[in-house]
Simulated assay, not measured.
Amino acid sequence: MNDFLIHVRSLDAWTRAAEYGVRLAALTGSAVTGAFVYPSPLTLAPTYSSPELLEAILASTRETAALAKAQAQPFLHWAREQGAPQAAWHAAEGDVAGALAHIGTWHDLLVLDRGTDPATHVPAELARIILTVGLPCVLVPRHAMARVSLDCIAIGWNGSQEAVRAIHAAMPLLQRASRVVLLEGPLRRTYPEITWKPPLDIDLYLQRHAVHAEHRPLASDAGEAGEALLEGAAQVDADLLVMGAYGRSRFSEWALGGATRHVLADAALPVLLRH
């Protein structure tokens, strides 16, 4: 995991995602790219627009583009000050999820935030990004974090494909942790017609990568899974929660399952998700 991509949602001040992503890059010796995405004027213009309105929209877009490009040197300088000298900056015009998916093709991890206003960056928007970019994503909480640490990492484990993908994606971070805790819920079979013989031995898999995990069962039914995961992570004082991003429908890029939605809305710690 050598290249981090950060979705920078504001040019007014460095966002929580920028703060966490740059500091995590410094901690892990990784390169980091900040990306600001602004909408195309074609998506902002009403169907029937006057020439004056179109010109105003174009002028506003040009101004935003200029401001976004001008943030390159400040971002690089700030990243160096935070201990991440390998930094880059991109400004992109277009759809946020599509632009991040394109830039993400040469990155290993995408860092996102929900903003400081609970009414912004709603779960539907986050879901579309998470399910589009094809990268593991770290969702950063709204509050400022005193420090970035990987001392303890909790894993939401139910045997599903998504959980395995999340663990595989997080392996470089798990290998840095002093403590790894498997928060175990009921095993989930995504494809009942397929039976692994033998089933995946998660302890053996982790040990092959020099990761030794504790086991902590979660007493929860499916409706309380998200709350139980967050409570379990808090009980072990986790610095990061790793979990799969579960979609309620394989055919919908908008809908996430209840546990994932709960974590997206309420997590007070960074969460690494992999769909």
Rank of each mutant, 00 (worst) to 15 (best):
4 F>L: 15
4 F>A: 07
5 L>V: 08
8 V>R: 02
9 R>I: 14
11 L>E: 10
14 W>P: 14
14 W>C: 07
16 R>Y: 00
21 G>E: 11
23 R>N: 13
23 R>E: 15
24 L>I: 08
24 L>D: 09
30 S>C: 13
34 G>F: 04
36 F>E: 04
36 F>S: 07
40 S>N: 12
40 S>G: 08
43 T>E: 15
44 L>R: 05
46 P>A: 12
46 P>G: 07
49 S>I: 13
53 L>N: 04
55 E>L: 09
57 I>Y: 05
57 I>D: 11
58 L>Y: 06
59 A>I: 05
59 A>H: 12
61 T>F: 03
62 R>D: 15
65 A>F: 03
69 K>C: 13
76 L>D: 10
76 L>Q: 14
81 E>M: 09
83 G>W: 05
84 A>L: 06
87 A>V: 03
89 W>F: 10
94 G>L: 08
96 V>G: 08
101 A>T: 08
103 I>S: 00
107 H>P: 04
112 L>A: 07
112 L>R: 02
117 D>L: 04
120 T>D: 15
121 H>I: 15
123 P>A: 08
125 E>M: 09
134 G>D: 02
135 L>A: 03
135 L>I: 04
137 C>T: 08
141 P>S: 05
147 R>D: 15
148 V>K: 05
156 G>N: 07
157 W>F: 03
158 N>F: 01
159 G>T: 04
161 Q>A: 13
161 Q>P: 00
162 E>Q: 10
164 V>F: 09
166 A>D: 12
166 A>M: 08
167 I>T: 01
176 R>M: 15
176 R>L: 15
179 R>K: 13
187 L>G: 05
188 R>V: 14
191 Y>C: 04
192 P>Y: 07
193 E>I: 08
194 I>P: 03
195 T>N: 01
204 L>Y: 00
207 Q>N: 13
212 H>W: 03
216 R>V: 13
216 R>A: 14
217 P>N: 04
218 L>F: 03
221 D>F: 01
224 E>K: 05
227 E>A: 14
228 A>N: 01
231 E>C: 01
239 D>L: 01
239 D>P: 00
240 L>H: 05
244 G>D: 11
244 G>W: 06
249 S>W: 06
254 W>N: 12
263 V>W: 02
267 A>N: 00
268 A>E: 13
273 L>H: 00
274 R>T: 15
275 H>G: 06
275 H>C: 06
